[in-house]
Design a protein around this nucleic acid. Sequence first.
DNA 1: ATCATTCCTGAATACGTATTCAACAAGTTA
DNA 2: TAACTTGTTGAATACGTATTCAGGAATGAT
Lengths: 334, 334
Amino acid sequence: MVSSRDVAKYAGVSQPTVSRVLNNPSKVSQPIVDNVRKAMKDLNYRPNNIARSLVSNRTKTIALVSGPLHNPFFVDTTTAIVNYAASKGYYTTVHFENHYDNMSIYETVLSQQVDGIVLSSIFINDPIFDELKESGKPFVMFNRRHETGGHFVELDNHQAGVIGAEHLVSLGHKAIAWIGGTTEASTFLGRLEGFRDKLKNNGIQLNKDFILQTDTTEKDIHRAIQQLFLRRNKPTAIFAATDSIAIFVIDCLLKMGFSIPEEISICSVDNLGISAHESLQLTSIGHNSNKSMGLIAIQNLIKIIENQRKLEDEQQITLEPELYLRQTTSAIKP
Amino acid sequence: MVSSRDVAKYAGVSQPTVSRVLNNPSKVSQPIVDNVRKAMKDLNYRPNNIARSLVSNRTKTIALVSGPLHNPFFVDTTTAIVNYAASKGYYTTVHFENHYDNMSIYETVLSQQVDGIVLSSIFINDPIFDELKESGKPFVMFNRRHETGGHFVELDNHQAGVIGAEHLVSLGHKAIAWIGGTTEASTFLGRLEGFRDKLKNNGIQLNKDFILQTDTTEKDIHRAIQQLFLRRNKPTAIFAATDSIAIFVIDCLLKMGFSIPEEISICSVDNLGISAHESLQLTSIGHNSNKSMGLIAIQNLIKIIENQRKLEDEQQITLEPELYLRQTTSAIKP
DNA sequence: ATCATTCCTGAATACGTATTCAACAAGTTA
DNA sequence: TAACTTGTTGAATACGTATTCAGGAATGAT
């Protein structure tokens, strides 16, 4: 391993001068700059980022705590976050949510040395919020939020639920099932409540058996759907809390022999790119911002890290949803 | 920031003792261990990984240089790699391939301080190979390989091409187009050559206009397909070098009004989970290992890092492909 | 000619941890 | 009792860089 001292010796200067050539060449006379640069090349010198971080107290890395990539939503956000961070000179270490033990992930992240954290994996009243706050490290939430506030970017989930209910009711559906994940998450809670509220507005009571909570894995969704159709009363439509869930539901229903939308309508929330695929043509509800939530989150985080925005000046962004009508919903047969 | 010195002072011991309690508690008497542990709790002490790394020369982080996540293949491998690394106590920093400037990514990775590198983004005769070798850091390639060797996990790409040609020819197809990415990559090159060789075996010359090279983005694939069907001679089948490409091709063809497989057969390579989705039912060619290539790669890398395997003892794994028959291919109409 | 200023450079040090080594006490062997 | 081992602890130091500070040379102003 060649160090700045080795370069210094080779170039006949002191180590601080090498450091200056690296970070502040204008403070060094031109001939010496050239000389040191040549030494660096000759010795194939690469500065040690670890040593740099130790003194500067900045690591140029951010941690991403993301939902699982089997949900295409997180595919898009991860791509946006990693690439934007890279364009700003930041490394991104990624951690995928562990449904049963997120705490150990945060433990890892907090003892890691990062300049900031972007995260989606948080519950509405998650105790991790206070720990993050206490750590003093800037963090921004995307997709989900915490009851306390902080920096976040989210969809108006309640409104998304309302739009979904509205749409399906307007097509004549009355027996509608809701399928999603844990209501400890602001996304699922909001989408469920908006949906339920709007149904109630229309004089429809959301049957408890029609509320399906899963862990959002393919396996659990198949289980839930199969169980749903064992019941005497069957739904004519399904409102899935995310496109990812809808995609699994569709696979399951098709395998069971249903035709969509003739026998069952499905719509969901997120409006991912894949929903527009001709093989799917999924009716979905999403925002129309040209920036993904992940991108907005990482942009804000980096602004905070670089002191272009004050930490206390909380950015709380709620995007407005709208309906993207495609082929998986249709009017109920008379 | 509370340091081991602060803990030491609080507990009335020296800093090395705190360090020992952390890393080698058996070297410290029980009462002092308890005392120091209490001090750590009281002060909410977290060891500084940066300082640790500086002295130990190990960062417990690996770099992943991956293809883009819009290819579901890399979704699976990224998940496997990140999660396995985490289970072994390693952080993963991820970098997504930049089609036009991979060199700057590797520049970044090499000046980062990592214990090892897992990568897919490499060309057959990529000059980066030598730089990686020279850096002394262990690295393992997956999916793609380099002519020189090194550690890698790949599919027998030539054989995959052979199987694809075999299958389509056996269904009576003669006008078959190939669509893939740059033949600088071992995957595309192997799949193209195997395909072409097998066609030639059957007396079919692969027309140059039927070889479509793209940058594997949706946009470029749509462009290539549309251009293909402007020609006088149209193919009756398409062999896509990856499932990801096939998915974009299918979207494009359906939008153009073709029915699959009645008017056009499609098969591809990778056999991703999504290919079995009822809406897609993509005929595909893949290996039948229960481990993903990403998982095999990261397992080998960590073994090397932890000296359970010698660096020189090169692991070169080639998985054998087989055909998974689904609904996107059918016999040509008489 | 004197003084002030600017520019450039290196010696010393700090960052937070792990490790080496010496010192010392307590216990063990002859 | 003397010599030797074992166990426990702290002082000193190393890791590779950035920064502070002081000193010397060169320049400009008076």
